[in-house]
Amino acid sequence: SLEGTEKASWLGEQPQFWSKTQVLDWISYQVEKNKYDASAIDFSRCDMDGATLCNCALEELRLVFGPLGDQLHAQLRDLTSS
């Protein structure tokens, strides 16, 4: 749920159509929501749009996002199937 936050830029759009900015917004949101240590994320490797993100295998997401990769992968699957 997104109570208390302004409507996120990526909400209501299919992930494969996200811009690079929307991807970063979504990642930041997941980091906050999961109380994850953002210093463990290599943000220089997050410079990708939604289509690229959706094409990432779980292993790739783990490389870039560490333990949060599993969470991101699961969330993406939910978003693309809805």
Rank of each mutant, 00 (worst) to 15 (best):
E6C: 09
A51R: 13
C54R: 04
Y36E: 15
K7Q: 10
A57V: 08
E13M: 15
R45N: 05
C56D: 01
Q30E: 02
L24T: 09
Q14M: 06
S82L: 09
Q22Y: 01
K33A: 09
S28I: 08
S44E: 14
K7Y: 12
H73A: 07
Q14F: 11
L2T: 06
E59I: 01
G66V: 00
D70E: 13
R62V: 09
G12L: 08
E6K: 07
F17I: 11
S9A: 07
K7R: 12
Q75T: 15
A74Q: 06
E13C: 14
M48P: 00
D25F: 02
V31Q: 03
R62I: 02
Q71S: 14
A74K: 14
E13K: 03
T80F: 01
L24D: 01
P67L: 07
E32S: 08
G69E: 00
E13Y: 06
G66R: 01
Q16H: 15
Q71W: 07
Q22W: 00
S9P: 04
A8T: 15
G12K: 14
V64W: 08
F17S: 13
N55L: 09
D70P: 13
W10Q: 03
E59P: 09
G12E: 13
S81Q: 08
D70T: 12
K20L: 04
W10F: 08
Y36M: 12
Q14G: 11
T52Y: 07
D78N: 14
D49R: 01
M48A: 02
D70Q: 06
G69A: 09
L68T: 06
G50W: 00
L11G: 10
L2D: 02
D78L: 12
G12V: 06
V31S: 10
L11Q: 13
Q22A: 11
S44H: 06
L63D: 13
E59F: 04
A38C: 15
Q75C: 15
P67E: 13
M48H: 01
L76G: 00
R45W: 12
L76T: 01
A57T: 12
F65P: 00
S28Y: 11
H73F: 06
E3N: 15
V23R: 01
K20D: 04
D70Y: 07
E60G: 08
R45P: 05
S9V: 04
A40S: 11
F43T: 06
E32Q: 11
D25E: 13
A40K: 10
C54E: 03
L79W: 05
C56E: 04
L61T: 02
L24P: 00
P67D: 13
S82P: 13
D70C: 02
Q22K: 03
V31A: 05
Q14D: 13
Q30I: 02
K33T: 07
A74S: 14
F17D: 01
R45E: 10
A40N: 06
S19T: 09
V64C: 09
E32K: 08
F65S: 01
E3Q: 03
L58F: 12
M48V: 05
C54M: 13
G50L: 00
Y36R: 08
L58N: 06
E13I: 10
D78W: 09
Q71A: 15
A74T: 14
C56K: 10
F43E: 07
A74C: 06
M48E: 00
L72V: 13
E60T: 08
W26G: 00
N55D: 12
H73G: 06
M48C: 01
A57D: 04
Q16G: 12
C54D: 01
D70A: 08
N55T: 06
D25R: 12
Q30S: 02
D47M: 05
K35T: 10
N34P: 01
F43G: 06
F43S: 06
S82Q: 14
D42R: 03
A38I: 15
T5C: 03
Y29N: 15
L63C: 12
S28R: 13
K7S: 15
L2I: 15
G50K: 01
P15W: 00
C46S: 09
H73Y: 07
D37M: 13
N55E: 15
D78Q: 13
D37L: 05
T80R: 07
Y29F: 04
L68P: 02
R77F: 04
K35V: 09
R45I: 06
L53V: 03
F17C: 06
L24E: 08
N34W: 13
R62Y: 10
L68W: 05
A40V: 14
L61M: 08
Q75N: 15
C46P: 05
W26R: 01
K20R: 13
K7W: 09
T80E: 14
K33L: 13
L72P: 00
N34Q: 09
V31W: 01
L72M: 10
T52I: 02
Q22C: 04
K7A: 14
Q71F: 11
A8C: 15
R77C: 06
D25Y: 02
T52K: 09
R77S: 13
L79H: 05
E13N: 05
Q75K: 03
S39L: 08
L76K: 01
D37R: 08
T21I: 08
L79T: 02
F17Y: 13
K20H: 05
V31L: 10
Q75Y: 12
Q71G: 07
K7N: 14
A57K: 07
D37H: 05
V64F: 03
L53E: 00
D47S: 13
A51T: 11
W18N: 01
F43N: 15
E6H: 05
Q22F: 01
G4A: 06
V31M: 11
V64Y: 07
L53F: 08
D78K: 09
D49C: 00
K33Q: 12
